[in-house]
Simulated scan of single mutants.
Amino acid sequence: MTTKSLPTLLIVEDSPENRMLLIHLLKDSYRLKVAINGEQALEVVQLELPDLILLDIIMPGIDGYEVCRRLKAEPSTSKIPVIFLTAMTDVADEQLGFEVGAVDFILKPVSPPILLARVRNHLLLFQLLNNLKNQNDILDAKVKERTEELEHTQDAIILAMASLAETRDNDTGNHIRRTQHYVGRLATQLMHHPDFCQQLSLANIALLEKSAALHDIGKVGIPDAILLKPGKLDSAEFEVMKEHCRLGRDAILAAETVMGKESAFLCYAKEIAYSHQEKWDGSGYPLKLVGDQIPLSARLMALADVYDALRARRAYKPPMSHETAVKIIIEGKGTHFDPRVIDAFIVIQHEFEEIAEALKDALPDE
């Protein structure tokens, strides 16, 4: 083994005789750094981190206890094992030493076999702990990588499922992405509102934004003759169209049943799919829910969906301006929409306009 590959020990000892003895006993097995007092020891450590420190307690200036305290207070040196060298045998002295962070004591006069055994054992333990930490870090990194991979896969599957429904009556999948962003921004604006702060954590907002993609998944069950009809639906056709809320909820419920347990994401997805056509005054569908009976997730989705529908270009209508869409939505305060959600929308309406512009649908000849 080369000298450079040997473990490095720092000997901190003010007695020349004791220093020479320690150097003599350890020089053949370890790289040695030497300090004659506490101040010098702290300087040496800043230049090169040793693998273990043999630290005298009684020294002029900073004593060993204080040196150990300072070492343990710094993240870069806190893990270095410190063995105290002392002639003190009082239990209180040992207790203080362990409290400031030492791993062991070696009594003076030093016994060579004990010194060599203690140093070897603590270096081995330190190495094993480092190896374990490294293995845990590697495992954590792999788990994180796998989790991110699964999340990306889940996102892709969700978008694909949503697009199956969306592209039947919509030329692009941008509607899905836009409404997801709208829901996320509304929720973020409301997260500090006293009525909603318990529901709208950052984690829940992320789930809300993701689950918003499935709001119209039930459209896959609506006949093309109704779904793609260019004109206004008659009353019978509209009753069929309204079924997309139930169909969407039932599809998500079936997925949840296969999983065998409830999921926060699927719970939000069910709420949004089933209730995003409800209105604050009870005139919506499918259950004519009123006010706070409507899940918050669905109230957010309702506004996002209407704004996007107003701004979108369709074969039967030109797109409305942002200003016109905002005016129509504000007129629905307290009737179609939760007044508190409207208030949040007014504050961040410019962000809706930015999202609509950034993710606008391409024109047919583009």
Rank of each mutant, 00 (worst) to 15 (best):
I157V: 11
K133C: 08
L52W: 00
A87D: 04
S283Q: 10
D14A: 03
I57K: 00
L47H: 09
Y307D: 05
F196A: 07
F352L: 15
T8V: 11
D171C: 01
I53S: 05
T188V: 02
K279Y: 11
N136Q: 15
S76E: 13
F196L: 08
T335W: 01
F238S: 13
Q95W: 03
I58Y: 10
V143W: 01
A41K: 01
I252M: 04
V326N: 03
E237L: 01
R177K: 14
A213Q: 04
D137W: 03
D137R: 12
I346C: 11
L107N: 13
I158Q: 02
T167Y: 02
M1D: 02
L266T: 05
P230V: 06
H122D: 03
A362L: 05
D14E: 10
S201N: 12
L123A: 12
L52H: 02
V103C: 13
E151F: 06
R177T: 13
G260N: 10
A117I: 02
R311A: 04
D51W: 09
S321P: 00
Y268M: 05
L22M: 15
S15R: 08
A156K: 14
L96V: 09
G334M: 07
I138E: 15
L115V: 07
L207H: 04
F265H: 00
Q180A: 11
P75R: 06
E209A: 08
P113V: 11
L202P: 09
R299M: 09
S76L: 10
L71A: 05
A102T: 14
K27S: 15
I226A: 07
S211R: 00
E237C: 02
A362N: 12
S297T: 02
L55T: 11
S163F: 05
L124R: 03
L303P: 00
K317C: 08
A255F: 00
I138C: 07
T2K: 06
E43W: 04
T3K: 07
Y65N: 12
V258P: 05
I53G: 08
Q293N: 05
L21I: 11
G97V: 06
R249K: 13
I272E: 00
D137P: 00
V306L: 15
R31G: 04
K327V: 05
E243M: 15
L359H: 10
L190I: 04
H336N: 13
